[in-house]
Amino acid sequence: MIRRLFWALTVALLMFPPLDPYLDDSMSRLMLIQFPLLFILGAVGVRFSPLRLSWGPGNALGLLILGWGGVLFWMVPRSLDLAVAQEGIDFLAHLSLLISGAVLALSLPLLAFPVQIAAAIYGIAMWSMYGLILSQTSVQVCASFSLEQQQATGVAMLWAAPVFLMFLVFWTGVLLVRQGPRRSSD
């Protein structure tokens, strides 16, 4: 119960004033704190929900692709500008990132282990590529943020990418150890 309450409070804190305008005001805070945290909270939220899927891997993969699509949409500079400029779109962005996180958490367990790893690598690659674009482009990509903010965010995203990768390697190791050695009959 306390965990659920804490989860709900954190989500509310991130989604609404006074913290939301503060996070929206800087591209780094938006891209490196608010959006990833909402996505992670969406994934964590699945643990507190009775909702479980019993779909086949094909449909689960479709759901996974839709989840990543939800994230991809908010990486389009035009979407980001609108989220910063309009309250309704800002709320929609928060909500869809929460849902994308939840969708990923629901679909990943239904997929084979290599597909899970591939999905995570794809996410990190998408994140790194976006960081690279932001850091290297000399043109202002988002009208709402200055060129300096944009480049600083790109560099920070590139620094964060290896951390995510290390975490992925560590988590893969943990899962493999938990799984135990392969038996010949497998």
């Binding site: 891997p57 094909g58 993969l61 479709g62 759901l63 692709i65 839709l66």
Partner: peptide, 11 residues
Amino acid sequence: GAAPLVALGLI
């Protein structure tokens, strides 16, 4: 197994 194709098409 058409769901991934449908999802890709939607995106």
